[in-house]
Amino acid sequence: MSETLLKVEALEKFFPVKAGIFKRTKGYVKAVNDVSFEVKAKETLSLVGESGCGKSTLGRSILRILEPTGGKVLFNDKNILDYSKQDLRKMRRDMQLVFQDPYSSLNPRMTVRELVSEPLYTHFSISKMEADQRVDEILEKVGLPLEHSKRYPHQFSGGQRQRISIARALVLKPKLVVADEPVSALDVSIQAQILKLLVDLQEEFDLTYLFISHDLNVVKHISDRVGVMYLGKIMELADTEALYEEPLHPYTKALLSAVPTSDPLVKKERIILKGDVPSPTDPPSGCPFHQRCPLAEEKCQNVLPEFVQVRPKHWVACHLVEQ
């Protein structure tokens, strides 16, 4: 479990904001701002955060679906940001993505078999027979009956479609799977089915997951470690248990307290945050969270806190947390 599969160093993704008739760059949306972390082989690292915190952009930048504007992404110790297009394509066999919305991410004109075999033909020169065999294998693994392989996506429910997306990603036998909100569009009873499937497949294929979600409950269940993002930065990163039992950052505390209880008799101590997430075009000075932070001090307004290790395997970016 100690081998590092993916290492992200000071990754940045800035989108230029253009204005005026000459479309001059007026400023930048700092969607991902100086983010560093490591993912070990066969572990599940989750990134949580509210909408607009940059978690999806981060996931896409790592796979170079969006071209990062700075930093390094080391996959098996090689910086994939230096790769040429051809090399990158080869690399992508090992890194696959599962999308949130199983309704828009599958081509409605292709059958299940075509959808799932497409990545095989793209990445390997493979005979039809061989491809068919691999498709059959993976469909069985994700729990889709073989007789459904001639059907089209619209004939399936949301949960079934997500199984197709997962089959599409896993048919290449990747090492790393970036799952971007894979269960958010599904009903509660179906969510659990898909999560269970992801956990089972991880064991079977020795997968490493980078799991992106806004739902703290989902993440708690399947992650080894969890990172909390806010305005393009990771605020806290720790083992799942440590993060949920002893959160250190005020934002993590507020986020956890806002999750509805599953028991009407338990009344939670609730930290209600004021206001909304500030716009990433014009992030606050100092700590990005200081305007909404119930504990903010003067220092927080001016000085950006560093992301430091305060306990074994526990990193926080906050002035108020003592080392």
Partner: peptide, 21 residues
């Protein structure tokens, strides 16, 4: 009962899901 059990989160460790749709 199934719905409560499949509520991911604070409850038991094993994930429960209602089969079918």
């Amino acid at each position: 009962k199934g719905l409560l059990k499949s509520m991911v989160g604070d409850r038991s460790d094993a994930l429960y899901s209602i089969p079918g749709k």
